[in-house]
Amino acid sequence: MSIPGEYYLILAALLFGLGAFGLVIRRNVLIMFMCVELMLNAANLTFVTFARMLHDIGGQAAVFFVLVVAAAEVVVGLGIVVSIFRRRSTAVADDISSMKG
């Protein structure tokens, strides 16, 4: 059985859109993180699909870089959330809004 590459690209586009949509509508910071991860992995899926379609290893190699960066981002992000949580005991974005203007 073979599945056309376009299907994977469409799936990746849907996942990316889902992540972006979730980031906009969800208010919990942890869920927002997950949405960013979803978007990054949608990009990874696109990379791998194109790499297979183009018979080129470069796209698959790029995925490793993205994975490493995503891990590094989460480490920093969770650190920031923990430091805020210590002060405020909340992880809801709407409650964290002392600055306006």
Binding site: F16, G19, A20, L23, V29, M32, F33, V36, M39, L40, A43, V69, E73, V76, G77, I80, V81, S83, I84, R87, A93, I96, S97, S98, M99
Partner: peptide
């Protein structure tokens, strides 16, 4: 902390894009 969180979420979003 609040500023870092905002920067981080929007920065992460822009990186993903």
């Amino acid at each position: 902390g609040e500023a870092a969180l905002k920067y981080f979420i929007l920065g992460g979003f822009s990186s993903a894009v």
